[in-house]
Nucleic acid binder design. Structure first.
Lengths: 328, 328
DNA sequence: CGGCACGGTGTAACCGGTTTCAGTAACCGG
DNA sequence: CCGGTTACTGAAACCGGTTACACCGTGCCG
């Protein structure tokens, strides 16, 4: 059994208050007392119990972060950016992956009981659940989901870059484009879709939509099959994320469709595989998203902020050969 | 301010002991009392403080996991496999990324004070530090690092599959192979190297080694430059991980070297990009590593195990065109 | 020389739960 | 009608820290 503050106090011949003071603010005890307490603490190799401390201070010294998954390359980067800043600020980081489970709400509530505040990423839990937490006074920051009233939010730019993407496709010779994705799966997707549609309309690009069940490589393959059964392919396919685009391109190739000759393809996220597949895509400042969220949360916890903040970080169109200009 | 057990007790006209019992074991209080306590708890919307509970029960109900980073595709998967099982078991998960920081040791010690046990991945902290924790009675499981005396360990098979990889390369017509990696960076790499060397010797493959500073795409590019300056390329290059191999292949291509015609290349990990680059590699059961570690740790914490266990999960050679047989 | 400020310390009341132990009332069999 | 279970409940001790407050001695000032 580890030794407690009372053991140290007894052994040093002082009161527990003095031990506590010696541990947390050495300058306010006399040098002689400090020496004795230090010696006793070393002797018993005493480490203050985090639990005792947390209870007395009424704070956990920990932040939570909630995300749907960690499989893709996406959330891992955000989490690492977050962890980096949080641990810099001396706080522990609790994680929770919801995996689209319906029990997510209770899991998050439980998590909230273990930390001083939390960051919620993407498609994990309802706005309603977040509002309830906010109402209970839990400091909250959302990342990559549309702002919830009164809650701090950090996101990557979607609309404008999707708009630019439409322009780029038109410049590359496309006359028609299909947006591939599932807007129900994530609010980001909804924004990308809206941006693309707006841009397409602006430059006179014919635009339509194809919904997929899953936003992974499998979904891309299914879409490829569907598109190949149509009388004609569109000029371009703008996918809601890279995994879709990669699965789509692989399946198209197997059917003899050559990208970009027969159809232009774009993704979103700039995952590592996109470089190797020469996929045009959009890069997001993933670590920055996490880091910014961590700083926002810290401000909230410390009570340094009243007005809710909304931050949108810029994204960047990365043009590769999957969308290079078509010959007429 | 949230309400406490005493508020509920007062409002329900019972003692705090009864409230506690009603919350955790409803069957042992009378139906009438239960009803009153429930009503009061609802009314005040009372949630038992995790901190109070933890202090009284002398357990955190949380596990820690320590890893070097989360950037690559590697650790993210392990962490997610771990989180999945741990949260299934009703425990919270604390993460800590060391990023090769020298302060890692203190960070881990602090982390250990906030949880009931921890899992340590790969190249994060010295064996000595782990032994000290183990001695202090912290339940410990290591993943992907060589077993430390008395500590549970889970790892993926390296030696045998690396041996098989050497055989495969010889079968594909290679007469010489270079192992590319940095054995100091990770114990896994050391084992892969040893397995490859053993296999190469067995099948009469000439084998040598090229060390790189960093085990990422950049490192692969540097290696490509170095190799191209030699009088002749080896027949095959076995890289310690996929990122190295991918960087290497890209840089080789830029120099007009064609894979697999001019040289065979293999990686290790089977990251997503490896599929798109048609890279021969070795797949590891990443989620299983995490999940197994979580179960081991749970057994340790529950005191169900005395003898330290060492588990080695099988890996699988994935042959793609980057190592397909050369024509003579 | 009296009073005051101040550095240093101890006592005890918290923080919010769990759990032991003892006590009471209802119920049972003899 | 009595002794012994049985079912429930409450008082109080505990988990391991922090901190408000009181206290004491010393040095300084008027």
């Amino acid at each position: 059994m580890a030794s407690t503050i009372r053991d140290v106090a007894r052994s040093a011949g002082v009161s527990i208050a003095t031990v506590s003071r010696a541990m947390r603010e050495p300058s306010i005890v006399s040098v002689e007392t400090l020496r004795r307490v230090r010696a006793a603490a070393d002797e018993l190799d005493y480490t203050p119990s985090q639990l005792g401390r947390q209870l007395a201070e009424r704070r956990h010294g920990a932040n939570g972060i909630v995300f749907p998954d960690l499989s893709g390359p996406y959330y891992g980067e955000v989490v690492v950016g977050y962890e980096d800043v949080a641990s810099e600020l001396g706080r522990a980081v609790l994680i929770l992956a919801t995996h689209g489970r319906p029990a997510a709400r209770e899991m998050i509530t439980r998590l909230a009981g273990r930390c001083d505040g939390l960051v919620v990423l993407g498609h994990t839990v309802s706005d309603e659940a977040l509002l309830e937490l906010a109402e209970r006074g839990v400091p909250l920051v959302t990342v990559a989901r549309p702002p919830v009233a009164g809650v701090d939010s950090v996101a990557a730019e979607n609309h404008r870059t999707a708009f630019a993407l439409a322009t780029h496709l038109a410049d590359s010779g496309a006359r028609s484009v299909v947006f591939l994705g599932n807007p129900d799966r994530s609010p980001d997707v909804t924004e990308r879709r809206a941006g693309l549609f707006a841009g397409a309309r602006e430059v006179g690009l014919e635009v339509s939509e194809l919904r997929v069940e899953t936003m992974d490589e499998q979904g891309g393959a299914v879409a490829a099959e569907h598109l190949c059964q149509q009388p004609a392919l569109p000029d371009a396919i703008a996918c809601a994320n890279d995994e879709l685009a990669l699965g789509l391109m692989t399946a198209l190739r197997e059917r003899g469709v050559v990208v970009p000759r027969d159809v232009l393809v774009t993704g979103w996220d700039d995952v590592m595989a996109a470089r190797y597949a020469e996929l045009t895509t959009v890069r997001q400042p993933l670590r920055d998203l996490g880091a910014t969220a961590a700083r926002f949360l810290d401000d909230l916890i410390a009570g340094r902020r009243a007005e809710p903040r909304i931050e949108v970080l810029p994204t960047e169109l990365i043009v590769r050969s999957s969308s290079s200009p078509r010959e007429r």
